[in-house]
């Protein structure tokens, strides 16, 4: 059936976007058990960096995207070094860390709004109507294919990193027991700093791709973060496969949900899914 195919495609597209945000979030959460609200604003930083270089300053596409990803990663790493690490050292409670991340989120978002105004912006010069492709009886645009390929590559890349590299094994050890990781000789502060870099860079990439698809706004971070968090919890927190699973599940539930219910209920459906999981299976689909 025509509409079903399209809904499946839409579910995958939305799922891929949520997975993108959830991947970075879960990586950081897995290593630090820290709910980083500021994660959302790194997506905005990625998008706005590309906006600045590509759209405003005429720098070509690839370097602009690289700059965006790098800047988001650096911002994440700096926020760990300057704010979260000192709080961790002082054994700050999770409430304090959460509040600090919220404060950071708000501050960075305000800076972006001041620098670039509150308005919605697009990353392409003319409001580009994307090249579309027919898949079975549905339609998908070019940027969505890019997003899906990116998510698949990132997931594979993260898998390889976590399981085949020494760094990845250190991350896994830190996720299990940070103190023992230190005892056996792992410089956990440094490793966590790199984890923040990678996770935030992924968020930045997400913001860039979403920017090319729809557009950017200084406040885009919160909405993305919420969906990313729902995807993480539903899939299984701290687990990269959980990100993929949760992202896809959320994407499908939202898109099939509005098939029968009106579009205004989209957010309610997403949060309904979250609450159901929190009540009945808080460890998520793939959680232990």
């Amino acid at each position: 059936m025509d509409i079903l195919t399209q809904l499946v495609i839409n579910g995958i597209i939305a799922g891929a976007i949520y997975t993108l945000i959830a991947l970075g979030f879960n990586l950081i959460y897995g290593a630090t058990k820290f709910f980083n609200i500021a994660h959302g604003v790194f997506a905005a930083i990625g998008g706005y960096t590309v906006f600045f270089f590509f759209k405003l300053s005429g720098v070509s596409l690839v370097p602009s995207i690289l700059a965006g990803v790098l800047l988001a990663g650096i911002a994440g790493m700096l926020s760990d070094r300057l704010i979260f690490l000192p709080l961790r050292r002082k054994r700050g409670s999770s409430v304090i860390m959460l509040v600090a991340s919220l404060g950071l989120f708000t501050a960075l978002q305000s800076v972006i709004a001041i620098m670039f105004s509150n308005r919605f912006q697009t990353l392409t010069d003319i409001f580009n109507i994307q090249k579309t492709y027919q898949i079975f009886s549905g339609v998908i645009t070019q940027i969505h294919i890019v997003i899906i390929i990116t998510v698949i590559s990132l997931t594979i890349g993260l898998f390889l990193m976590l399981n085949r590299t020494k760094f990845g094994k250190a991350v896994k050890a830190i996720s299990d027991d940070e103190e023992v990781a230190r005892i056996i000789g792992i410089d956990t502060d440094r490793v966590i700093g790199y984890v923040f870099f990678i996770g935030s860079a992924i968020a930045g990439l997400g913001g860039i791709l979403i920017g090319f698809d729809t557009g950017i706004m200084p406040t885009m971070g919160m909405g993305l973060l919420l969906k990313g968090v729902i995807a993480s919890i539903v899939g299984g927190v701290g687990n990269i496969y959980g990100s993929v699973c949760g992202g896809l599940l959320l994407g499908f539930v939202e898109n099939f949900g509005v098939w029968k219910i009106s579009g205004e209920w989209k957010d309610a459906i997403a949060f309904g899914l979250l609450i159901i999981f929190l009540l009945f299976r808080p460890q998520g689909v793939l959680g232990k």
Binding site: S175, V180, R182, I183, G185
Partner: peptide, 23 residues
Amino acid sequence: ATHQIAALGIAFIPQGRRVFRHL
């Protein structure tokens, strides 16, 4: 700094059988 001590040749087995459970 804790992480610099293992390299000296001292190993510490802390209380509570703390193995990496997922490995």
